[in-house]
Each structure stands twice: as structure tokens, then as C-alpha cells.
């Protein structure tokens, strides 16, 4: 069935989203590189520029809130381009009737997270819509950063190592656990965190880092598929090496979800020269957000443009980007 209308799935971060961007937005706007941030030259300086909108429901969730997420998401998109976050804009779309105390908490959270990263909020915008036209509030942030390293999803080569800084799926499961209709008891909290200082310590470790992506919507699966496609390489992950906590695994089993496709908000997938993996791991493990860092896979020549999983029982299967599942809004 051809899509003649926008479906919820088009916002899921999977193949429907990719199709929408590649067929409509990118050609219309003449965008070639589809990375987490654009890198632009400005008076001899290389700057990274990005924007993201946040519509997470509920706007307070275990481990964070929409304000913290709006800062982390955007500074992480800059960090993934090897850029030190410098300036942010914050645009607010507020629903008539939103509690002031809720808004104050969210603003305090934005302030604290920005201070933590050392990024300045320099401009903003406010709109209010009628009750029922949005759920509480939506936030858009845009960010500018200074590029200090040359990384790109296209630079990955056979022989590279794939590294992640910790356990997977916590943000998605934490948000799901508070959604009406599926609320369940869990102590999982969102991993939502700004990644710049962790990324910086890996970048200055001397390791040759080729690509970085934060596995948000679509999870690790969408991320490795994107990298494999962009670089024209094969990526093989080892199921036995994937860090997934028992509670996240249990929740996924219960809800029929794959931890590989669940969103993270404080994780980075780093692809570096195979020989430099130890260096990256040392740098990451010395940082509070990288204590559980580990190598989860390797880059091969084939199958070109695809990601594979060596399963725990020794079989091999494809890792596919999710199409855009019927899941609640998680960011």
C-alpha cells in the first residue's frame, strides 16, 4: 500500500523515516550528508549545526524529563560529529493549561543540564496553543558546536572495531514503563545524559576514531544499519557481547520488543581502527558514563551495506532497521 498520508510510523526513526527524508526532504533541500549534525565552514572555522524537536510523553519520566532530554539530544548530536557544543536555542510550544510548577521544573532541568555540558543558551521562542493541541509541551532545540575531529559514518573501514559505552535500551523501557495503558513496575531509569565529555576523552586519547552515532530512536539496530549503508561495509555484532540489563531484557520479552531497536539517550556507538580499540576503551572506562564500555562487534568487507548478528547459540542473522513500529513517543 502506497502512503498518501503521514503515518505515526514516519516518525519512528526506522526505515519509514529514512524513506521520508531521502525521498522528500533531502532532495528538496539539497542535503547530501545525512548525519546527526551538519558540518559547515564559517570564516575558516568548521562548525557543526543541528536541530531536534522533543515530544516525549510523559514529559517527566524515570531518570529525566523533556527539558534534560532537549539539551542532551541536541548536544549529543553535535558530539557525534566530533563537535564541542557551544550555543543552544530553545523553542517552547506550550499547551494552554500547563502547570507553571511543571514548566519551572523543566526549565530548571534545562539550565542544570546546559551548565553541566558548558553550553550556552542564547536564544529562544515561545508559543502557546489551545488546550488539546499538544500534550503539555513540546520543545525544539538547535545547537552550534566547534568541530575538533573529523568523523563520519562514511569513514568506517573493514577491520574497525565497534564499541558502545554501556547497557542498552534503558531510555525506551523507562519511558514505556510510565505510559498509560502499559505502565509496569520496573526500576529501569532513562540513561539520558550529555555525552560530550565522554566523547572528548575518547577523541583526545589518540585513537583513530572513524564514526560516532548515538543510538536513539530505532536503537542500536538502526544505528549500525545506517553506518554499514553509509560506508558500504558489513558490520557484525556479537550477541554475547551486547550489554543488556536483566530488567530491560525482561521488559522486552514481555512486550515483544527487541532490545536492539529500543531507544537510548546516553549511549554512543563508536567505530575506531581495530588496533585502537583498547585505547578507546581505556579512555571511556575512566569516565563515569563509560564504565561498562565494551567492544560489541567488528567491521568487515561483506555483506556490503548490511549489519549481521552472531547469535548466542552460534547462528548468524541479519540486523534490520525497524520500519517504524507502533510505539509511543519516546523523545
Amino acid at each position: 500500500m502506497k502512503h498518501d498520508r503521514i503515518l505515526l510510523g514516519h516518525g519512528g526513526g526506522g526505515s519509514l523515516t529514512r524513506e521520508l527524508i531521502e525521498r522528500l526532504f533531502a532532495p528538496a533541500f539539497g542535503m547530501k550528508e545525512l548525519e546527526d549534525s551538519a558540518v559547515v565552514e564559517f570564516t575558516g572555522q568548521r562548525l557543526a549545526f543541528t536541530t531536534d524537536s522533543y515530544v516525549v510523553k510523559p514529559y517527566f519520566f524515570p531518570g529525566g524529563d523533556i527539558g534534560k532530554l532537549a539539551v542532551c539530544g541536541t548536544v549529543n548530536d553535535l558530539a557525534m560529529q566530533g563537535a564541542q557544543p557551544l550555543y543552544l536555542s530553545v523553542g517552547m510550544i506550550l499547551e494552554e493549561g500547563l502547570l507553571f510548577t511543571d514548566l519551572e521544573k523543566i526549565v530548571a532541568s534545562i539550565k542544570a543540564t546546559a551548565a553541566d555540558v558548558g553550553v550556552k543558551i542564547v536564544t529562544g521562542d515561545t508559543k502557546v496553543v489551545e488546550r488539546g493541541k499538544c500534550e503539555g509541551l513540546y520543545i525544539n532545540t538547535a545547537g552550534i558546536g566547534r568541530v575538533i575531529a573529523d568523523v563520519s559514518s562514511r569513514r568506517v573501514r573493514p577491520g574497525d572495531a565497534v564499541i558502545v559505552n554501556g547497557t542498552l535500551g534503558e531510555h525506551g523501557v523507562a519511558v514505556l514503563s510510565r505510559r498509560e495503558g502499559i505502565a509496569f513496575q520496573t526500576s529501569v531509569i532513562s540513561d539520558c545524559a550529555p555525552l560530550w565529555s565522554l566523547v572528548q576523552s575518547a577523541l583526545i586519547s589518540g585513537a583513530e576514531i572513524h564514526a560516532m552515532r548515538d543510538p536513539t530512536r530505532g536503537g542500536l539496530a538502526a544505528t549500525v544499519c545506517d553506518i554499514a549503508a553509509a560506508s558500504g561495509v558489513g558490520i557484525r555484532l556479537l550477541e554475547s557481547a551486547l550489554p543488556v540489563g536483566a530488567e530491560v531484557r525482561g521488559a522486552c520479552d514481555l512486550l515483544g520488543l527487541d532490545p536492539l531497536t529500543i531507544a537510548n539517550e546516553g549511549k554512543v556507538v563508536m567505530v575506531c581502527r581495530g588496533a585502537d580499540a583498547g585505547r578507546v576503551l581505556d579512555a571511556m572506562r575512566a569516565h563515569p558514563l563509560g564504565r561498562d564500555a565494551r567492544v560489541i562487534g567488528e567491521v568487515m568487507e561483506k555483506p556490503k551495506g548490511m549489519a549481521m548478528l552472531r547469535t548466542a547459540i552460534g547462528g548468524e542473522r541479519i540486523i534490520d532497521a525497524p520500519t517504524g513500529e507502533d510505539l509511543p513517543r519516546i523523545c
Binding site: 502506497k2 526505515s15 515483544g256 561483506k302 555483506p303 556490503k304 548490511m306
Partner: peptide, 28 residues
């Protein structure tokens, strides 16, 4: 394909076609 399914075995996440496509189709 899962983005453009013609039959139910491809559209349901537990369908034989969707599972085969997602995890076992021949590498290009």
C-alpha cells in the same frame, strides 16, 4: 517488503515472511 507489505505474513511482526525478511534474507 515490511515497509510495503502485500500480504499478512509480511506485515505481522511474527509473520513467517517478516521474520525471514528481517533476519534471514540473502545478503545483497
Amino acid at each position: 517488503t515490511p515497509t510495503n507489505p502485500l500480504g499478512p505474513c509480511m506485515v505481522s511482526s511474527e509473520g513467517a515472511c517478516a521474520a525471514f525478511y528481517k533476519y534471514e534474507r540473502k545478503a545483497a
